[in-house]
């Protein structure tokens, strides 16, 4: 379920075409085009993608724990859920905030669309919206007692 994402590992030596004092546009605050594309690919690669602190088995933050518990409670199958541990990659930790334009972790994506952080997931869980959303995206298996109506 979990794999680390070394999106931002740069080659040890970049060719020094520019003078050493040239301000690099890949400076810390801005997400490079390459990193942006990799995150963009990652959020679309799995039906449910969660950027969290820690792993589902060992969450390192109460908010991240709450989100994976809710997804588990909703019955999201493991094969449809992918989580990334931002604590293992500080550039991902900051990059994802900029990518989503969202200041906090965890962050949940469904079919490539940003759904929200812990507060929103929790609220949607309580209101039933989350179940609806997951059903719409065919992420939840059909209910066992759901008998198709026949005439």
């Amino acid at each position: 379920m979990y794999s680390s994402m070394r999106l931002f590992a740069r080659p040890a030596r970049l060719p020094r075409v520019l003078s050493p004092n040239f301000p690099t546009y890949a400076s810390r605050r801005f997400l490079s085009q390459e990193a942006r594309e990799q995150i963009s690919k990652a959020v679309k690669a799995d039906p449910v993608v969660v950027f969290m602190k820690g792993t589902p088995d060992s969450p390192q933050c109460g908010f991240s724990r709450a989100v994976v518990q809710i997804l588990d409670l909703q019955g999201v199958p493991v094969e449809k859920l992918k989580t990334y541990n931002v604590l293992e990659d500080s550039e991902l930790r900051n990059g994802i905030k900029e990518f989503s334009d969202w200041p906090t972790i965890p962050q949940v994506y469904v079919d490539g669309d940003f759904v929200g952080g812990c507060d929103i997931i929790m609220g949607m869980h309580q209101s039933g919206e989350l179940e609806k959303l997951l059903e719409q995206h065919n992420i939840l298996p059909p209910l066992p007692d759901a008998t198709p109506k026949t005439s």
Binding site: F63, D101, W102, P103, T104, F114, V115, G116, G117, C118, D119, I120, G123, M124
Partner: peptide, 26 residues
Amino acid sequence: LTLARHRMINELLKNQIAQMHAFSQR
């Protein structure tokens, strides 16, 4: 929608949230 509301608050409190460990909103 809730997401838009939260984005609005995140933007308003951008500087403050950046300095916190945790921020939760309703």
